[in-house]
């Protein structure tokens, strides 16, 4: 990971964070489906990143979203959980040729169907942790499952759209 890609990642995250807070904070489709698009910055970190820096980055991202959401700790816990699972999951679903050095797990470098397999379980795990923490003590588990399922689908759809629209097609050498 060179200096330029770090810079790009930070810029990407700040942009997604701004969108998250300014536009998506109070958006909930049918009162059920939330969108946590800032997770895209976490999902698109290079495959080769080690899990310790990954988890620290995730924790920081979570905290910075938390302060705006007034839910201090919840996003941090859930994002760290996502980061913890991410590398295991990447190993499990690695394509037959393995990953290239510096590969980014995005639609452009792999395929849309691969991205869905990659992102959906991680987003679902994130939402599950987040809403469980949020509903802790109210005992309303059906609501937690409901919200998690639809939120992860909504986030996934938006993540795909963002990538198709704004990410340059990888040049074929």
């Amino acid at each position: 990971m060179n200096f330029r890609s770090i810079f790009g990642t930070v810029g990407q995250f700040l942009l997604l964070l701004a969108i998250q807070i300014l536009f998506l904070k109070n958006l909930a489709l049918f009162g059920l489906a939330f969108c946590f698009i800032y997770l895209l910055a976490l999902l698109l970190l290079p495959v080769s990143i080690r899990s310790i820096p990954l988890m620290i980055i995730a924790f920081m991202m979570g905290i910075s979203v938390d302060v705006f959401y007034e839910t201090i700790g919840m996003h941090a816990a859930a994002a760290t959980f996502l980061a913890f699972l991410r590398n295991f999951w990447l190993k499990i679903i690695s394509p037959s040729g393995g990953y290239d050095e510096g590969d980014i797990p995005s639609i452009r470098s792999q395929s849309t169907s691969w991205f869905v397999t990659y992102a959906f379980p991680l987003l679902f795990a994130f939402c599950l942790v987040l809403f469980s923490l949020d509903f802790w003590g109210t005992g309303n588990w059906l609501n937690v499952l409901n919200k998690s399922f639809f939120s992860s689908i909504f986030t996934l759809i938006l993540a795909i759209i963002v990538q198709l629209l704004f990410f340059p097609r990888r040049r074929v050498i």
């Binding site: 620290i56 905290i63 302060v67 007034e70 201090i72 700790g73 760290t80 959980f81 923490l133």
Partner: peptide, 27 residues
């Protein structure tokens, strides 16, 4: 590290949720 970070997060949640509890960051 995972357990450690989660512990910090849960501690933040708990300390922030006590109605009059001191909190470090919020809006």
């Amino acid at each position: 590290l995972f357990v450690f970070l989660e512990a910090i997060a849960v501690w933040l949640i708990v300390s922030n949720n006590s109605p009059q509890g001191a909190a470090f960051f919020n809006s």
